[in-house]
């Protein structure tokens, strides 16, 4: 089980011949992900780690049959075009790894995808992985042990750190979802929580947030109101972040009086969600909420 992707998900890699695309295609194949095709304009007829390359998704579907999902590695300048291609080809899930896409491009394709009922993971995400079944992303797979915790995050390495802490305490992950580090992303915490709360393999959720925007605050309001839910533990990065400064991620900025650590911690705690002070406290708090 798990959410968004599983062992049956048929995947195409857009930008498969690039350095990152080719490298991670190899790692995803090694993990067992069903990568059936790749695209790279003008490279039709070539292969990357045994995966056939096409000029377009349309061609790939004609030759390989139905494709469910795409993972995008193309450079920021061409990323929006790749997203529209995937949506219009009828794919249901698009994982956008690319960092540095202009925010107005993101606004447009995220709205377009939502109207078409297509799920976008990212942009600027490590991807999504249902542990033991399917990896659609760039995360180091060995850090994630299979288990009962749904992990949703706005960052990459910090998520790996927390997955490792879970593993040390004998806890594993059902699915890990990277929302992406940009101000506008396809999914938010509420979208992913709704999936995790319905997933039989997930017993609790770990939310890894960071300063900037109000996604954590909105999740807290939702969590308080919803009746069907599972225990949640949170970690929020950026307590020491000064206002008005972008902390690496385009989305990690305290601006217009919104998005600081204190506001997020307060909102989550008021909704009954414990907030860990360090990554190492996450499994400790998780044990407590799971015992209750």
């Amino acid at each position: 089980m798990g959410i968004l992707v599983n062992s049956n998900t048929r995947i195409i890699v857009q930008g498969i011949t690039g350095r990152e695309g080719a490298f991670h295609t190899k790692l995803m194949l090694e993990y067992g992900s069903k990568i059936v095709a790749g695209t790279s304009p003008g490279k039709k007829g070539t292969y990357v780690h045994g995966v056939p390359v096409y000029n377009s998704i349309d061609e790939a579907i004609r030759e390989q049959g139905a494709i469910d999902a795409s993972i995008i590695f193309v450079p920021a300048k061409f990323a929006a075009d790749a997203v529209y291609e995937a949506i219009d080809a009828g794919l249901k899930l698009v994982v956008v790894i690319t960092e540095g896409i202009p925010v107005h491009d993101e606004v447009k394709f995220v709205n377009y995808a939502r109207k078409k009922g297509v799920v976008i993971v990212g942009p600027n995400t490590p991807g999504v992985m249902t542990v033991g079944e399917c990896k659609m992303g760039i995360m180091p797979a060995h850090v994630f042990k299979p288990g009962r915790i749904g992990l949703v995050s706005r960052s990459g390495t910090l998520t790996y750190e927390i997955a490792r802490e879970l593993g040390k305490h004998g806890e594993g992950v059902s699915t890990v979802v990277g929302l992406g580090g940009d101000p506008v992303t396809g999914l938010d915490f509420i979208d992913v929580a709704e999936l995790f709360f319905k997933d039989p393999a997930t017993e609790a959720m770990v939310l890894v947030g960071e300063i900037g925007g109000d996604a954590e605050e909105r999740f807290a309001v939702y969590y308080k109101k919803t009746s069907y839910k599972k225990p949640v533990v949170a970690y929020i990065a950026g307590r020491t972040a000064p206002p008005g400064k972008r902390m690496g991620h385009a989305g990690a900025i305290i601006s217009m009086g919104m998005g600081d650590y204190a506001s997020k911690k307060k909102a989550l705690e008021e909704a009954g969600i414990p907030v860990a002070e360090t990554p190492s406290q996450v499994p400790v708090l998780l044990k407590q909420v799971l015992r209750q």
Partner: peptide, 10 residues
């Protein structure tokens, strides 16, 4: 990574 860098500072 931005998140881990912030977590280190915190």
């Amino acid at each position: 990574g931005a998140g881990l860098t912030m977590a280190t500072m915190d």
